[in-house]
Simulated assay, not measured.
Amino acid sequence: TNPGNIWDYCQKGSGGRKQPENAPLPVVCISTTAGTGSEADNSGMVTNSVTKEKLGIGFQSLFPVLSIVDPELMVSVPPALTAYQGLDTFFHLAEGYLSKKANFFNEMFSITGIEKIGSYLGRAVKDGKDLEARENVAFANTLGGFVMSTGKLLSQHSLEHILSAYHPNLPHGAGLVLISRAYFGFFIERGLCAEKFVKIAKTLGFKEANEPKDFLVALEHLLQECGVADLTMNQFGIKEDELPGFAQEVRTSLPLAFDCDPIALTVKDCEEIYKRSFK
């Protein structure tokens, strides 16, 4: 219903920054994966392969008027993609919970969704036809969309989007896995969000958790259970000498998510997280 192409309406980077002149056609979402929560939010990511930018586009008018979340439509998703998508859901939930813009409303969604991921994602990865597992992971995914719509995420997603913009063969969830230990460890080492990290660890199923670093133990268990703990940047063609440039670019082109972090990450901090994630 509007002229031009989608990049004209991107509000960041080299996007055209146009506003829609006309109301869009009604959006109806039927989920066939459980990862991004698109059935419950008003935005999406667009990759510009010419400029190597991967940026979000969203307007209030793009919230779905109807969403159908049916786990029977997800049983054919292969194990690796089930893991990548489900972990994307987990990071939505965890980032929203740790965000400076967290609130009672989205924290409620986060904790419920994290409990579902901890209990059911491993099962869904191991047996894609396990409808109980698929249903609970799908529900967690929709909650992740609510978390994004009622709060904000952290810069982990921004750090990943740079990786997959330059390496489009890198699945988004896999990219998040690659940087997750170093990213959350950065805040834990600085004593930030201590109670929340313990709460997430307990909610994932590590009931004995009593200190923030137990979050990393619980995360490692989840990655192992999903069969993705040994992913490396080398597998996806990412070179170590690219990382300083990525760190510089992410702070320039995707600044908004950094405003939600427990502390403001510098370019040097981003480079440290990338380098600690490289193997």
Rank of each mutant, 00 (worst) to 15 (best):
residue 243 L to V: 07
residue 261 D to G: 02
residue 231 L to V: 03
residue 237 G to N: 04
residue 248 Q to D: 10
residue 236 F to A: 05
residue 259 D to N: 13
residue 225 E to I: 09
residue 253 S to I: 15
residue 243 L to R: 04
residue 245 G to W: 05
residue 233 M to L: 09
residue 230 D to K: 14
residue 247 A to S: 09
residue 250 V to S: 06
residue 247 A to Y: 05
residue 237 G to E: 09
residue 255 P to M: 01
residue 252 T to F: 11
residue 258 F to M: 08
residue 251 R to T: 12
residue 248 Q to K: 11
residue 249 E to N: 11
residue 227 G to S: 06
residue 234 N to E: 15
residue 245 G to Q: 12
residue 251 R to G: 06
residue 252 T to S: 14
residue 249 E to I: 08
residue 237 G to T: 11
residue 230 D to S: 11
residue 235 Q to C: 05
residue 230 D to I: 01
residue 247 A to K: 09
residue 246 F to V: 09
residue 254 L to V: 10
residue 242 E to A: 10
residue 250 V to T: 12
residue 248 Q to Y: 07
residue 254 L to Q: 14
residue 260 C to P: 01
residue 259 D to Y: 10
residue 229 A to F: 11
residue 259 D to V: 09
residue 260 C to M: 15
residue 226 C to Y: 08
residue 238 I to D: 01
residue 228 V to Y: 06
residue 255 P to H: 04
residue 239 K to I: 02
residue 225 E to N: 15
residue 261 D to N: 14
residue 231 L to M: 13
residue 250 V to A: 00
residue 257 A to R: 14
residue 247 A to V: 10
residue 251 R to V: 11
residue 245 G to F: 12
residue 252 T to Y: 12
residue 250 V to Q: 02
residue 233 M to K: 04
residue 258 F to C: 08
residue 226 C to T: 08
residue 250 V to H: 02
residue 251 R to K: 15
residue 228 V to Q: 01
residue 257 A to K: 15
residue 236 F to T: 04
residue 261 D to T: 08
residue 241 D to A: 07
residue 259 D to M: 10
residue 250 V to L: 04
residue 231 L to W: 12
residue 259 D to C: 09
residue 238 I to A: 02
residue 246 F to M: 10
residue 237 G to L: 09
residue 254 L to W: 00
residue 249 E to Y: 05
residue 228 V to F: 06
residue 229 A to C: 05
residue 245 G to L: 08
residue 251 R to M: 10
residue 234 N to P: 00
residue 257 A to F: 13
residue 239 K to V: 00
residue 229 A to M: 06
residue 246 F to Q: 05
residue 252 T to E: 13
residue 248 Q to I: 11
residue 239 K to G: 03
residue 238 I to H: 00
residue 253 S to T: 15
residue 235 Q to P: 05
residue 239 K to H: 08
residue 261 D to M: 01
residue 239 K to R: 14
residue 244 P to W: 07
residue 244 P to T: 00
residue 245 G to K: 12
residue 253 S to F: 05
residue 247 A to P: 07
residue 239 K to D: 03
residue 226 C to I: 00
residue 233 M to F: 12
residue 226 C to D: 02
residue 244 P to I: 00
residue 249 E to H: 10
residue 239 K to L: 13
residue 228 V to E: 02
residue 234 N to A: 13
residue 256 L to C: 01
residue 230 D to W: 02
residue 235 Q to N: 10
residue 258 F to I: 02
residue 255 P to A: 00
residue 242 E to V: 05
residue 225 E to H: 11
residue 233 M to E: 07
residue 230 D to M: 03
residue 234 N to L: 10
residue 241 D to W: 04
residue 242 E to R: 04
residue 240 E to Y: 05
residue 226 C to L: 03
residue 245 G to R: 12
residue 231 L to C: 09
residue 253 S to Y: 07
residue 227 G to F: 04
residue 248 Q to N: 09
residue 257 A to H: 14
residue 255 P to D: 03
residue 228 V to C: 05
residue 253 S to R: 14
residue 242 E to N: 06
residue 235 Q to A: 13
residue 230 D to P: 00
residue 238 I to Y: 02
residue 259 D to K: 14
residue 228 V to I: 13
residue 230 D to Q: 13
residue 229 A to Q: 15
residue 236 F to K: 04
residue 238 I to F: 00
residue 254 L to E: 12
residue 257 A to I: 00
residue 237 G to P: 08
